[in-house]
Amino acid sequence: MEENFKRNQDFITEMNTIKIERQLQMRKQFRDRIIALEIAKARELFFWYGSFYLISLAGALAGYYYYYRYRYKRKLITLAPLVPLSFIMAYQADLAYGNKIHRILVEAEHIMQFEQELLALPLGIPTAASIDLGRLQKDEQKKLHPLLPPV
């Protein structure tokens, strides 16, 4: 009787450990996907910022040149605010009506397949043992310093 109880208890403990490890692995995979999507979004936005920067730089240089060459003629400087606003509108239109989401998903899949080092956790995947160790350390800390707030 006692042997069956011990075997059942060991089985339940093993199943709980497996369950925790599966949950940790599942959370890591979800986190990897979210991080890959965020990196892909940042890369896509960088292309837009780069384009805006280059066009603004070219416009500034051209404006400097034309200002000194044709300063007595009518200036187009009043249209300058249209440049950043045009980029913002084009970015939002691409996001809403274009295939930007598809490009972001493709880039995220590329990151997950070929750039796994970007998704690595600082100390690796936590294990059931490391979680139990952290819990035991926290309990020990509570026993030693009961009045300190938990960290």
Results as ranks from 00 to 15, higher is better:
residue 101 I to N: 10
residue 78 T to I: 13
residue 124 G to M: 04
residue 72 Y to H: 12
residue 74 R to N: 11
residue 113 Q to D: 11
residue 119 L to A: 04
residue 118 L to E: 08
residue 91 Y to M: 03
residue 109 E to W: 03
residue 68 Y to E: 09
residue 42 A to Q: 09
residue 82 L to Y: 12
residue 121 L to K: 02
residue 102 H to C: 07
residue 76 L to Q: 06
residue 60 A to M: 08
residue 125 I to E: 12
residue 64 Y to A: 13
residue 120 A to N: 07
residue 112 M to F: 01
residue 43 R to Q: 08
residue 61 L to K: 04
residue 111 I to G: 00
residue 121 L to C: 04
residue 63 G to A: 07
residue 86 S to D: 08
residue 110 H to Y: 14
residue 108 A to Y: 00
residue 69 R to S: 11
residue 59 G to E: 05
residue 122 P to I: 03
residue 39 I to M: 04
residue 125 I to M: 12
residue 88 I to W: 14
residue 86 S to K: 04
residue 80 A to K: 02
residue 80 A to P: 00
residue 90 A to H: 04
residue 112 M to K: 10
residue 56 S to H: 03
residue 64 Y to Q: 05
residue 80 A to Q: 02
residue 48 W to R: 03
residue 108 A to H: 01
residue 86 S to G: 15
residue 51 S to Y: 08
residue 88 I to C: 11
residue 82 L to D: 03
residue 62 A to Y: 09
residue 102 H to T: 14
residue 89 M to K: 11
residue 66 Y to L: 13
residue 39 I to G: 00
residue 60 A to S: 10
residue 88 I to L: 15
residue 109 E to L: 10
residue 75 K to Y: 09
residue 76 L to Y: 11
residue 65 Y to A: 15
residue 95 L to R: 06
residue 47 F to Y: 07
residue 121 L to N: 04
residue 118 L to R: 13
residue 115 E to W: 02
residue 102 H to L: 14
residue 119 L to M: 07
residue 80 A to T: 10
residue 64 Y to M: 14
residue 125 I to W: 00
residue 95 L to T: 07
residue 123 L to I: 07
residue 100 K to Q: 15
residue 72 Y to L: 10
residue 67 Y to K: 14
residue 99 N to L: 06
residue 74 R to V: 14
residue 98 G to P: 03
residue 100 K to H: 06
residue 45 L to R: 09
residue 117 E to D: 10
residue 99 N to I: 04
residue 98 G to H: 04
residue 53 Y to Q: 07
residue 91 Y to I: 02
residue 113 Q to E: 13
residue 55 I to R: 03
residue 67 Y to T: 09
residue 46 F to N: 12
residue 61 L to D: 02
residue 47 F to P: 00
residue 124 G to C: 08
residue 117 E to V: 00
residue 63 G to C: 03
residue 67 Y to C: 10
residue 101 I to Q: 14
residue 80 A to V: 14
residue 111 I to S: 00
residue 74 R to Q: 11
residue 118 L to N: 05
residue 77 I to T: 11
residue 102 H to G: 12
residue 125 I to T: 14
residue 80 A to R: 02
residue 71 R to F: 15
residue 118 L to T: 00
residue 85 L to R: 04
residue 97 Y to D: 03
residue 90 A to K: 06
residue 49 Y to W: 10
residue 75 K to R: 13
residue 40 A to P: 01
residue 96 A to I: 09
residue 95 L to W: 10
residue 52 F to Y: 13
residue 81 P to F: 04
residue 102 H to S: 13
residue 101 I to P: 01
residue 61 L to M: 15
residue 61 L to A: 13
residue 64 Y to L: 14
residue 91 Y to E: 04
residue 110 H to F: 08
residue 50 G to H: 06
residue 62 A to L: 12
residue 97 Y to E: 08
residue 86 S to W: 13
residue 71 R to D: 14
residue 56 S to W: 06
residue 40 A to N: 01
residue 77 I to D: 13
residue 71 R to L: 09
residue 109 E to R: 09
residue 58 A to L: 15
residue 100 K to I: 03
residue 111 I to R: 00
residue 49 Y to D: 07
residue 111 I to Y: 00
residue 81 P to S: 05
residue 77 I to M: 13
